[in-house]
Simulated assay, not measured.
Amino acid sequence: MEFGALLLLTLLGLSFGEPGFVQRDYMNTLEWLRAKVEFINNLEDKLKIFDGWQSDVYALEARLNATVDELTRQKAEVDRLNKENQDMGMRLNATEEEIDKLKQSSAKDAPQIAFSACLSNSGEIYSGPSTDKTLVFKRIFSNTGGYDQSTGVFTAPVNGLYYFTFSTYGYNTHIAGAILMKNGVRQISTFDYTSDDSSDIGSNSAVLQLAAGDKVHMELWDNGRVYDNWNGHTTFSGFLVFPV
């Protein structure tokens, strides 16, 4: 609106000039005005482009700020997880140390029960046939508790699972072998009839659950005989696997 008024006043002013100059000044002014209008239009186009760029910059800045906020949040989460991992590592180390202490304490506190013996403690010995068929193993290799070398009977000191093993050696003149007895009840055995071969050897083993006070011993078969000497052919051993 202001530009149109200005243009009108300019034209009116020129109309009062000299006729020769009026025509020439009018053409020059019109050309100048056209140039200014084109400049203004170009400037407006550039302003529109600038406004578009500014909008893009604002949008980019917003996305950048959002990215920075997300990275900050993620860093805080990573720091939290690292702290949790450190805490878990410390608790794990403490737990492992406690387990090691418990293992050491259990190993020290657990009953240590084991024995191993053979029949002869000197020279040669034939045991059986006899009325008292209990075998008494007199040569002690080890005995940390439970076995009575005067009676040949093992008495369980504590409730638990016990492992027993034995071997027997005999000649063909009698039944060779022996029976593992628990509280007077047959459990396992070795056995061989009289035969043409000169000697027989056998072995057997078992894991028995015993209560404290239960008794285990070895017994001959009826009319049975076993042999031993310093070489330890006829043996009896046992130990506590673990308490129950």
Rank of each mutant, 00 (worst) to 15 (best):
Ala212Trp: 05
Val207Asp: 09
Ala66Thr: 10
Arg139Leu: 09
Trp53His: 11
Val244Ala: 11
Ser120Gln: 00
Ala211Glu: 07
Asn223Leu: 05
Phe3Ser: 12
Val22Thr: 14
Ile99Pro: 02
Cys118Pro: 01
Leu33Arg: 06
Leu30Gly: 00
Ala212Gln: 11
Arg139Val: 06
Ser199Tyr: 13
Val185Phe: 01
Val153Lys: 04
Met27Cys: 15
Lys138Ile: 00
Trp32Tyr: 12
Arg186Thr: 04
Val153Pro: 05
Lys48Ile: 15
Leu119Cys: 00
Val57Ser: 02
Ala107His: 05
Glu44Arg: 15
Ala176His: 06
Ser116Ile: 00
Val136Ser: 07
Met218Trp: 00
Asp214Asn: 09
Ala156Val: 14
Ala178Trp: 00
Ala66Gly: 15
Ile188Trp: 02
Leu9Ser: 14
Tyr171His: 10
Glu61Asp: 12
Val216Cys: 07
Trp53Gly: 13
Ala114Asp: 07
Gly17Arg: 00
Asp148Ile: 01
Asn121Trp: 04
Ser142Phe: 12
Glu44Met: 12
Leu9Lys: 14
Leu12Met: 07
Lys101His: 12
Leu33Cys: 13
Ala66Phe: 11
Gly184Lys: 08
Ala178Thr: 07
Thr155His: 04
Gly4Glu: 13
Gly152Phe: 05
Ser167Asp: 05
Asp192Lys: 15
Gly89Asp: 15
Arg80Gly: 04
Asp79Phe: 13
Ala117Met: 03
Gly145Ala: 10
Lys182Cys: 13
Asp87Cys: 02
Ala117His: 06
Ser106Val: 13
Gly170Met: 02
Gln54Gly: 02
Gln209Lys: 06
Met218Gly: 00
Leu6Cys: 08
Arg139Trp: 11
Glu77Arg: 15
Thr165His: 07
Ala110Ser: 12
Thr144Glu: 12
Ala35Ile: 08
Trp221Cys: 04
Tyr163Ile: 02
Asn229Pro: 05
Lys103Cys: 09
Gly238Pro: 07
Ser127Arg: 13
Gly213Arg: 10
Lys46Val: 09
Leu43Trp: 15
Asp148Leu: 15
Leu33His: 12
Ser198Ala: 11
Ala66Tyr: 07
Ser237Leu: 06
